[in-house]
Design a protein around this nucleic acid. Structure first.
Lengths: 238, 238
DNA sequence: ACCTGAACACCGTTCAAGT
DNA sequence: ACCTGAACACCGTTCAAGT
C-alpha cells in the first residue's frame, strides 16, 4: 500500500494523472451518475486517458473505493459528542451512520474484520469508547460496536439496492403480483398491512431503530442496576 | 411474471431445458463454486446450452436469483415457534436469519420495500405476528420487523464480503499496515484491543445481538409497564 | 516514470435466424 | 415453441511497447 504521489525525482515524463485528480474525477462520476457507472474505463474516459494509466496511481478498483471513503471521512467534520454515556453512545452510532450514508456503495467493498479506512477509525474508537463509558468491558464494547455496525450496514445495503431498483426499468407487475398473492393466502398480519407496507417500509426510522439497538445492548449489561434505581425512585409505595 | 413451464400444447420442438433443471444447475454452481461464478453464460455451459436459451425460462438474472431463494424457502422446514410472546419473537427472528444464512448472496438482489419471495413470506408474517403478540400495534410491529431485517441483512452482507475477501488473493500488507497505523495514533480503546480485533470480530454472536435488538424493541413499547412491575415486585422497601 | 494499445477472459442482454 | 450464433455494449486486469 505504497502511496504513489509525484515524489518528484524528475526522471521520466511528468505525470498527467495524479491520485488526487483521479479521486476527484471518481467522486464526480459517483455524484452525477451513481456507483453503478463508476468503472475504471469510464473513469479513464472522464479524464481523457486510458484505463491502464489509472493503475499507476491505484492498485486496483478496490483500493480506489477505499481511497474514496478515506477522502470522504477526512473531509467529514468530527462532531463534539455529549458526555452522558448513553446519549454519547447513541450519538457516536448516529455519526457512523451519517458518515457512511453519503457513500453507501462502500459496503460492497468492506470486509471489515480488517479495519476500515484510516480516516474513519476515529468513529469506531468513539463508539467503543462510549460503550466502555456505559460500563461495558472492552470485549463487550467491541461486541456492541459490531451489533451497531451490522445494523448500520444493513440499512445502507438496503438503501443501495432500493436505489438500484429505482434506477432500473420498472416492473410494476411484480408488486401487483405480490399483492395478489398476498390476498390469496392466509397471513392475517400481512393481509392487514396490505398496501400500507410500502408506506411503512419507506420511512426513515434509522434513528429510532438505533435507539432500540443501543437500549437493548445496555440492557444486556449491568444496566439492570440503573433500571432498578429508576424504578425504585418512581416506586408508588414509597 | 408468467410462470413458463412445459404447458404441453405440443407444438414446436420439445424443450431440452426447464426452469426446474435450470434452478438445480444454478444451485449446483452456487454450492460448488460460489455466487461470484454464477453467470448466465457459466450456467448455460453447465447445461451444455447457450446463455440465450435460458431466457426462455427466466426473465433475467434477477428473476433467476429470486427463484433460487424461493425454491430454498420452499424446502426450508417451518419450525414450531414457542408460544411465550417474547421468546416467540426472538425465535422467529432467528428463523429469518437461519433461512437466509444459506443464501446470503441474495441480499444483493433484494430491494425489499417490495415483498420477497412468496415462499419466505411466512417468516415475515411470523415476526410481525409475534411482535403484535408482544403488545405492539401493527404499525410498530412492522417497524420492529424492519429493524430486525436491517440487522439481519447487515450480518449477511458482511458475511458475503468476508467470503469474497477470503477468496481473493491475500494482501497481508493491508492488515499489517492497518495495525502499524493504529500503533502510530492515539486511539486508546482500539490500541488496547489491538491484535485481538480479528478474534473478537470473527465470533458468531448473531444470536446474542438479536437478543439485544429484540430487548431494545420491546423496551420501546409498553414494556415499561412490565419492567415497573418486576421492579416493584423486587422493590427493597416493601 | 508515465502512459498507450492490444489483448485476455469475462459479463447481461437483444435480435434475427434456424428447426 | 424452443434454441443458436453473432453481435452490442460493457467489465477488471495484464503485458509489451512507446516516449
Amino acid at each position: 500500500m505504497e502511496s504513489r504521489g509525484h515524489r518528484s525525482g524528475r526522471t521520466g515524463r511528468p505525470p498527467r494523472l495524479s491520485q488526487e485528480a483521479i479521486l476527484v474525477a471518481a467522486q464526480h462520476i459517483l455524484d452525477t451518475e451513481g456507483p453503478e457507472r463508476l468503472s475504471m474505463r469510464r473513469l479513464a474516459r472522464e479524464m481523457s486517458s486510458t484505463a491502464m494509466a489509472l493503475y499507476h496511481h491505484v492498485q486496483d478498483k478496490d483500493e480506489l473505493l477505499l481511497l474514496l471513503l478515506d477522502a470522504h471521512a477526512r473531509r467529514y467534520p468530527r462532531p463534539v459528542l455529549p458526555s452522558e454515556p448513553r446519549t454519547r453512545l447513541l450519538a457516536a452510532a448516529q455519526v457512523l451512520h451519517d458518515l457512511l450514508a453519503d457513500c453507501p456503495w462502500i459496503v460492497e467493498v468492506l470486509s471489515f474484520d480488517d479495519f476500515v479506512s484510516e480516516s474513519s477509525l476515529w468513529v469506531v474508537e468513539s463508539i467503543v469508547d462510549a460503550a466502555v463509558g456505559c460500563g461495558m468491558t472492552l470485549e463487550d464494547a467491541v461486541y456492541a460496536y459490531r451489533v451497531i455496525w451490522h445494523y448500520t450496514t444493513g440499512e445502507l445495503a438496503i438503501r443501495v439496492s432500493r436505489e438500484r431498483a429505482r434506477a432500473r426499468p420498472e416492473r410494476p407487475e411484480y408488486r401487483e403480483h405480490a399483492l395478489e398473492f398476498l390476498d390469496s393466502v392466509d397471513f392475517p398480519r400481512l393481509n392487514a398491512v396490505g398496501r400500507q407496507w410500502a408506506r411503512l417500509t419507506s420511512r426513515d426510522d434509522h434513528r429510532r431503530g438505533l435507539e432500540a439497538v443501543v437500549a437493548g445492548l445496555l440492557e444486556q449489561e449491568a444496566e439492570v442496576v440503573d433500571v432498578m434505581t429508576d424504578a425504585v425512585r418512581a416506586c408508588p409505595c414509597c
